[in-house]
Design a protein around this nucleic acid. Structure first.
Lengths: 167, 167
DNA sequence: CGGCATTGTATGCAAAGCAAACATTATTTT
DNA sequence: AAAATAATGTTTGCTTTGCATACAATGCCG
């Protein structure tokens, strides 16, 4: 699903829109080559996405990670925490914290695993299912906001390039 | 600029390499359309970049934000916190926290502003300058790790697409 | 002058990430 | 079979970030 993380910050839009009076000493129009740095743009883009996500989901009170995890559990009932960590690239302790929050809200339940007593099976409750359904609508809206700036071809290209980074 | 976080594991590679015994109930090979979602890939990519950054910078003990801010102050000595917030898209309170940490480490100093008594001018100390120099080397290495997977044309394309998201 | 915006500041809280340590259970090696 | 490893969940603690809120001082504008 989607993601979520919390993050950080952004920089983009006002990079060169300074009022004259606040002009900086060495405001030569470039930020020291900072905008040739891919990592810089990834972070800003991530931050922008993060913020919009948070806004879109402020009513539901769900974070990116939480929605991601709900989605994953819905797709794979009985999945274990360790699997979630692997799929979403999160630490075991981090997954714990997220599951705990979701459990506290009554969205997921933990149960025993039939074949491996180390594992816990995770399932959505009815409330969790309802939450996810509501979340999916928000995700579509959020995704639309994001995709609006690209042609279908560009979207495919972007996904392909990003995939090379995380795969 | 750059980023950091620390890492974890990666998930990408093992998305479909589950041992038979741990096969998930509905492991149909796709993650519920999740990988058609741009936001999902941005977050995973961000996480991967963040982790690599943190690794690369573990010796220096600097975070993405901290390096970004150092860089910005070095480029614009006398810049104010509010300006940093605007450029890097961070809340004033968040900038405060970052500057406080940098100041505590003796990397930056606050001073009065000649023309606006509400503002504080920020400057790097010698230690801060040295830290930034060391950081720049790490950034190059980190950036190289990132760019290795792309041709120059792809890199330019990626930056262009990402820019549309945060600008 | 009076209202409004800007700036820095302080507090407090939530989410996430990580590390380190444990206990239990599985798996592999010897 | 016994011993060493690995996997899993769990807890605790600490850090960084993000944001809301509130306040005081200062600047700007009508």
């Amino acid at each position: 699903m989607v993601d979520l993380n919390t993050p950080e910050g952004h920089a983009g839009a006002m990079l060169r829109s300074f009022p004259a009076k606040n002009a900086l000493p060495s405001d030569d129009g470039d930020i020291g080559g900072i905008d040739q740095i891919v990592g810089f743009h990834i972070r800003l883009a991530y931050g922008a996405v993060y913020r919009h996500f948070t806004e879109t989901f402020s009513d539901l009170g769900l974070t990116q990670k939480q929605v991601s995890v709900l989605w994953l559990i819905d797709d794979h009932p009985g999945i274990a925490q360790a699997d979630i960590g692997r799929r979403l690239q999160m630490d075991r302790a981090t997954v714990m914290a997220i599951i705990n929050r979701l459990q506290k809200r009554g969205f997921v339940v933990r149960g025993p695993s039939p074949d491996d007593r180390r594992r816990q099976t995770l399932k959505l409750t009815d409330a969790g299912h309802d939450g996810l359904i509501a979340a999916r609508a928000c995700i579509l809206e959020h995704e639309q906001w994001l995709k609006n700036r690209f042609t279908p071809g560009e979207t495919a290209m972007l996904i392909e390039l990003l995939r090379r980074i995380h795969e």
